[in-house]
Design a binder for these strands. Structure first.
Lengths: 245, 245
DNA sequence: CGAGGGTTTGAAGTGCATCAAATAGTGTGG
DNA sequence: CCACACTATTTGATGCACTTCAAACCCTCG
């Protein structure tokens, strides 16, 4: 029949997105009916490296969830410099806080490798949040966690050296309480890790070598092996108010 | 009427706090009855310079509003360094985000000059926010604004020099679109402004003198006169993604 | 294979921190 | 009101961390 094919496709698509959204913390304790509405309004976009999702100061009409891939949030100044706001991957949400401000994004967003992005109208969130208490509470958890991270980030810029910031970054990549040697991959290019940590690529390269020399670490391309996590921790967490040794 | 003096006192006290809370953005569009409940549960504390309100990692039972005065939010590392998270004055709120995380403060709070602080149980906020949609939306506005500020703060640490950060700080102290010379007072000690901006007191002193020499600024103790705001703006906002010239 | 971006390395410069000491400012008790 | 102690601020000299500029190297991909 004539319209059903389309309608079925849409139902299918919605369904796939529905299942994804259902497991997103933002939709914890949200009724299926509401999630279905979000899924219906959502668009899944396939993006390639370099794609711009939105620019700083753009009118904010959507928020985004990264289904898979990586995105870079950034700001640019008049004199051409760039500051990294964040670098996000699977299951991370961005663009949501604009809703609670002046409906303008306060950073730009760019895809840094092929990714699948879910795009959801902020208007729908506005409507739903007006009715659904849990949605707001989930959003508050989300924003509070960001604030904590930003505070830590700022503290690190103030008190830690470049090698320490790298060390902290590596420690966060370690699964958890492993004790033996851990091998991990840098999640994105060294250049990007550098600017994520607020330093130049050259500084990053040199600082990483310092870690290699003084602590027990092996580097091979983008693979890094931490032979003794506790040595790294002792050196890094000394200058961090969060990681209590 | 027969109920006691005590009850009247309490009613009066509640009333004074009530009027204050009613004008606090967090309680915008909140029914009087709800605000009264907050006023009843609130305690007004007179604090003196140096008083500790809570410490980093403490269990979070209350949030606070500064009725008058100044408070410093800070973190300390094992090796004895301190990072300033924020410095707040009249009408600012702190300690609220702990509610949406693990119920621990993620910084310490200390009073830096004689102040009046309103102390409100987080439990009450939790209960009310569960019922009252607007309360959550107000809280979301609050947290979103903080995130924006933190992002800007981080950007400044990355891209601005010490003199520029001071210049930006001074510009924010300027009322608004005045064009003539503006004289303003530093809101707290130079030492504190320095650490608020992530630099040492010595650096602050020297950087301020640089501003005096190169841009048209006069310094006399804690009074600073900006003779031409636009000169300062041009120099500072070049390296900031927010202030579009 | 060759082009182009990512990464490393070296040399030199800059900005901020550190250490130390002088000066100004503030509050105290006599 | 002054002398004292104490803190905040300034100034100078020096050192270090990171940046900048430049060049080489490496790796990937068309």
């Amino acid at each position: 029949m004539n319209y059903s094919q389309y309608s079925n496709d849409k139902a299918l698509a919605s369904n796939s997105v529905f299942n994804y959204l259902k497991n997103t913390p933002l939709f914890d304790n949200i009724a299926n009916n509401d999630i279905i509405d979000f899924a219906k309004a959502a668009t899944v976009k396939h993006c390639e490296k370099g794609d711009i999702i939105f620019l700083h100061h753009d009118e904010a009409l959507y928020f985004y969830i990264i289904k898979s891939g990586w995105a870079k949030l950034f700001r640019q100044t008049l004199d051409g410099s760039e500051a990294i706001v964040d670098i996000l991957n699977d299951d991370h949400i961005f663009g949501i806080t604009a809703l609670y401000q002046d409906n303008r994004y306060d950073f730009g967003a760019q895809i840094i490798c092929n990714s699948e992005i879910i795009k959801i109208p902020l208007d729908l969130l506005r409507q739903k949040a007006h009715i659904n208490q849990n949605l707001s509470l989930n959003a508050l958890k989300f924003t509070s966690a960001i604030i904590k991270r930003k505070n830590t980030e700022l503290e690190h810029r103030d008190l830690q050296t470049a090698p320490q910031r790298i060390g902290c970054f590596l420690l966060k990549l370690c699964a958890s309480d492993e004790t033996g040697p851990i091998t991990l991959h840098l999640p994105y290019s060294k250049t990007l890790v550098a600017s994520r940590l607020g330093m130049k690529a050259e500084t990053f390269s040199r600082a990483l070598n310092k870690l290699k020399d003084s602590l027990d670490i092996t580097i091979s391309g983008s693979s890094i092996t931490i032979n003794d996590v506790s040595i790294l921790e002792e050196n890094v967490c000394q200058s961090c108010s969060l990681c209590r040794l």
